[in-house]
Amino acid sequence: MKQRTLKKSVEIVGIGLHKGVPVKMRLEPLPENSGIVIYRSDVGVTIPLKKEYVVDTKMATVLGKDGVVVSTIEHLLSAVYAYGIDNLRIVLDNDEIPVLDGSASGYCMLIEEAGIAELEASKKAIKIKKEVVVETEDGKKVSLKPSDRIVYDFEIKFSHPAIGTQKFHFDYSIEEYKENISKARTFGFLHEVQYLRSIGLALGGSMENAIVLDETKILNPEGLRYEDEFVRHKILDAIGDMALLEYTLIGEYDAIAGSHHLNHLLTKKLYEDKDNYEIIDLEEANSEAVIFEMAYAKESV
Results as ranks from 00 to 15, higher is better:
249 L>G: 05
166 Q>C: 09
291 I>T: 15
56 D>N: 14
121 A>T: 05
173 S>P: 15
105 S>G: 05
40 R>G: 03
32 E>I: 04
76 L>E: 00
157 K>L: 14
300 S>E: 12
298 K>V: 03
76 L>H: 04
206 S>T: 07
70 V>F: 00
171 D>Q: 13
262 L>F: 04
41 S>C: 09
98 P>G: 02
18 H>K: 01
132 V>K: 06
35 G>P: 12
2 K>E: 11
10 V>E: 04
94 N>D: 12
181 I>A: 01
240 G>E: 08
110 L>W: 00
251 G>S: 09
220 N>C: 08
72 T>E: 04
69 V>C: 03
128 I>M: 08
138 D>G: 03
59 M>C: 06
6 L>V: 02
229 E>I: 12
241 D>A: 05
252 E>T: 13
295 A>Y: 04
177 Y>C: 12
178 K>Q: 14
278 E>P: 00
293 E>P: 06
151 V>W: 07
202 A>V: 13
170 F>D: 07
68 V>T: 13
107 Y>K: 02
298 K>I: 02
7 K>N: 14
261 H>N: 15
204 G>W: 00
219 L>Y: 09
280 I>P: 15
248 T>H: 11
255 A>L: 14
102 G>I: 02
164 G>R: 09
70 V>Y: 00
55 V>L: 04
299 E>N: 09
199 I>R: 14
120 E>V: 12
78 S>T: 05
19 K>P: 15
165 T>E: 13
54 V>Y: 12
250 I>R: 12
169 H>Y: 14
285 A>S: 06
267 T>F: 00
97 I>A: 05
168 F>T: 10
167 K>F: 12
188 G>A: 13
118 E>F: 10
30 L>E: 11
129 K>V: 08
79 A>K: 04
7 K>E: 15
295 A>F: 03
12 I>K: 05
263 N>R: 08
189 F>V: 06
146 P>G: 11
21 V>Q: 10
205 G>I: 03
207 M>Y: 00
243 A>E: 01
297 A>C: 06
143 S>M: 13
113 E>Y: 08
178 K>V: 15
266 L>E: 09
199 I>M: 08
256 I>K: 15
94 N>G: 10
287 S>D: 15
267 T>K: 09
240 G>M: 09
199 I>L: 13
269 K>I: 00
209 N>C: 14
93 D>M: 03
97 I>R: 05
143 S>E: 06
89 R>K: 15
212 V>F: 02
90 I>G: 00
163 I>M: 11
11 E>H: 06
297 A>Q: 13
42 D>A: 04
294 M>G: 07
297 A>D: 10
29 P>K: 03
246 E>M: 12
139 G>D: 05
36 I>P: 00
77 L>G: 01
228 D>G: 12
27 L>K: 01
51 K>D: 09
274 K>D: 15
30 L>D: 05
175 E>R: 11
135 E>K: 11
214 D>M: 10
206 S>P: 04
275 D>P: 03
234 K>F: 03
208 E>C: 07
30 L>A: 13
192 E>R: 07
40 R>A: 01
179 E>L: 14
301 V>M: 09
143 S>D: 05
87 N>I: 02
